[in-house]
Design a protein around this nucleic acid. Structure first.
Lengths: 216, 216
DNA sequence: ACCTGAACACCGTTCAAGT
DNA sequence: ACCTGAACACCGTTCAAGT
């Protein structure tokens, strides 16, 4: 029915293609090795040959996906779902900070400059300016999506503060010990946050959320 | 040689005992149903009878463990809206880390220990254990609220990862320069995150936002 | 109601065997 | 080197059958 990798690809690329196209779907979990093999039209042994472990495959796929996502500004490409564009946009902001230094160097430097000792007024100003710039970029992304109706009207400043906090939490997590490659869980959290914002209730009067009837 | 639940327990309690005692170990993953059954000395079917699903078992265990460990009064006070209780719970976790040192001292110390230089394996393990513990506490709060119907059924592990990231982002923001008292915006972001989780769509078949159409 | 153990439909990974 | 498919050692969940 909906089978088949593009013709002329090597087995390795067929596998990467299969895994990449299984990431976008609704499923939050990483696709199974067997499912990837089936979609790619190869045996599980072949997958194992090119990617000895599931994590190695996923790492390769995520790098591939973001490398093709990041370079051009896909924000305005309305053929891509709004969710993916906003995720990519935030991912770009995270990557932007890291660039050449590696995130660890960035954080250590920032810590020494702004936290360890009381920052000078100039340093303080500098930091605040950078933070403001980050939030502005997020607000810009939100505005673009709002312009095409993908995002309900609402307080984008608040949303930007929220998304910035999430990005910040992900960024700091990158430099602390982690069980595995953070890339996958990072993407999951980012998608969760973005989905929340994009699905936000149009702020009805009544407090729809919790149970209005706690007593019984 | 380290077998056996305390005598005189009902099957249900033997299962809970087994699961609870498997939580503390070094393993980061939730114990398998089969392993719990084996340790409890019952069949898998018996586990299934008392706890139809693995998550229901885990939720019950977490509630049991944390209720006896540190009773959090406000969390169970159903006269308070679920939103406020979850916010308060997260704030408690944030405060818990800080305690006497002040957040700046905590972060500087954590940085020196886990980031600045490559952490030892022991330090790494220690950090991971603490992180796991934090997420479990969040899962516990979610399970409690779910128990009274204030939270839709869903992947609490994912939600906990998300809320933990938000809390982490807020925590790190505390030590960097800020325009004004962060307390207000912090509370706002926390409430936003909590509202998102509590209002989460019950995951209808089609994820409304983007169209998942990769292949073609 | 409570419990058993087999069975179902999956996993990730390993590996002898082919080309 | 690349690939196959069977096999190993697991999963969570279902279920007919017992008590």
């Amino acid at each position: 029915m909906e089978e088949g990798p593009p013709a002329g690809l090597s087995s390795r690329d067929k596998i990467l293609w299969a895994a990449a196209t299984m990431l976008g779907g609704k499923s939050a979990t990483t696709p199974s090795v067997r499912a990837v093999a089936a979609r790619a039209g190869v045996s599980t042994g072949s997958v194992q040959h090119h990617f000895p472990t599931q994590r190695e495959l996923m790492d390769e796929v995520l790098i591939l996906v973001y490398d093709t996502m990041l370079p051009d500004d896909s924000l305005h490409d309305s053929s891509i779902p709004a969710r993916e564009r906003l995720v990519a946009s935030l991912q770009r902001l995270l990557a932007l900070e890291v660039r050449d230094l590696g995130s660890r160097g960035v954080w250590i430097q920032a810590f020494d400059r702004y936290v360890r000792s009381e920052p000078t007024e100039a340093a303080r100003e500098e930091y605040l300016a950078r933070e403001r710039e980050l939030r502005r970029r997020i607000e810009y992304s939100l505005a673009v999506l709002q312009g095409e109706g993908a995002l309900a009207p609402g307080d984008n400043e608040r949303r930007a503060r929220f998304l910035n906090t999430v990005a910040s939490g992900l960024s700091i997590a990158q430099v602390f010990p982690a069980v595995s490659s953070l890339l996958a869980t990072e993407l999951e959290v980012l998608r969760t946050a973005v989905d929340y914002v994009l699905n936000e209730q149009p702020a009805s009067e009544s407090p729809a959320p919790g149970s209005p009837q706690p007593g019984e």
